[in-house]
Design a protein around this nucleic acid. Structure first.
Lengths: 199, 199
DNA sequence: AAAGATACCGAACATTTGTTCGGTAGGCAA
DNA sequence: TTGCCTACCGAACAAATGTTCGGTATCTTT
């Protein structure tokens, strides 16, 4: 399909930023302001061009994004970074950091890790772990479990033992938690399938 | 924070559907139509309630989503997970894990970590780190650097020292790398702003 | 040199928008 | 019973919106 001009891409960029950050389609005079244009008519022409090329849709005096202008590619993952500037060629890209790559699926959720009990497995205080509640949690799996009457969430490694379960930390300063079979306050939320950290 | 009534949630649902599928904030009469309401004034009241509870924002006669109501196909972050099934209501969600959450933006990229040299800071072999090439890398910052004639990428902590720079690992089994001032093969790719691990 | 895009302007206009007002009705707690 | 909250209505209005029109300037292509 047809390509966009540099200016048209700028206009689309402003629109996408508005939708992604504010959750609304910017008004023409708003777009004009951002691009230092003084007439909404100029923006109107750009929108018409973008619609003609399939990036926007028009319906009853209102504009909306078409599926093709939605960007879900995320950030490129550098495969082999050779000399010079990285990421100038497609061959050097292994993929993209997308929500799917992070582990976004229906039914999953995430919990913020508290404490240093899993430090030796590289899970630190403040990290976010992605939990799959539908994944079968077997012996040796990393899980999020709810403990005690307060249903406090904790991340530990699960061990199946005679008479019940054990939750193993990865830090010698913490002890193993033993859960007797049939403990009404114990519940495994799911298996940990990913981890995110902001720095 | 305050809870939503059943009807208010329905209104928010219609708005979110509009933003996600069409990329625009639905007009009040549009929302009214979807919910079989005959007056925009009714919708207006709902929007005011949603704004008062922090789910929407109002600015100069226009409505937009607030960060807390955004769900852009990421992983929901469980705020307080009580007994029963988690994450059935908006109130229990603190936000969403997205690529942006760990710093993924335009101009940034990510690199897969090789080796165990940063193990004691919770960065393991196979992790992905997000790199900001434009961020100033100062003393003590975690950086990705390219070393030697092969321009091998490495993650280390940067230290400015007399006569040059040092790259410090976080693992006693590895040694400090000293980079003389003016080394033609040395280049800092950027500062590490986030981390992702798949398990 | 002419033709055709692209990019922009300012003014004007009809429509749509958000917003206000007064009023009805049901549920629930004091 | 009296309040208070939520939910809804229809009419009306000022403001913001999309849109049209005529016109200029700068490119590149024919």
């Amino acid at each position: 399909m047809e390509e966009l001009t540099a200016r048209q891409r700028e206009v689309l960029e402003v629109i996408l930023a508005g939708v992604e950050q504010e959750g609304r389609f910017p008004a023409m005079r708003e777009i004009a302001g951002r691009l230092r244009l003084s007439s909404p008519a100029t923006v109107f022409q750009h929108l018409e061009a973008l619609a003609a090329k399939g990036f926007l849709r028009r319906g009853g005096g209102r504009w909306s994004l078409s599926p093709r202008s939605r960007r879900d590619r995320g950030v490129p993952i550098a495969g082999r970074v050779a000399a010079g500037h990285p990421l100038t060629a497609f061959e050097e890209i292994d993929g993209y950091l997308t929500p799917e790559f992070i582990g976004a699926r229906r039914g999953r959720f995430s919990v913020r890790v508290r404490g240093e009990s899993m430090r030796d497995e590289g899970i630190l205080d403040g990290d976010y772990v992605v939990v799959d509640p539908e994944a079968e949690a077997g012996d040796g799996d990393l899980v999020v479990a709810y403990l005690g009457p307060d249903q406090e969430a904790t991340v530990k490694r699960l061990r199946r033992r005679r008479g019940g379960l054990e939750l193993h930390p990865a830090n010698p300063e913490y002890g193993v938690l033993r859960v007797p079979r049939g403990d009404p306050h114990f519940r495994v939320a799911g298996r940990v399938v990913g981890l995110l950290r902001r720095m």
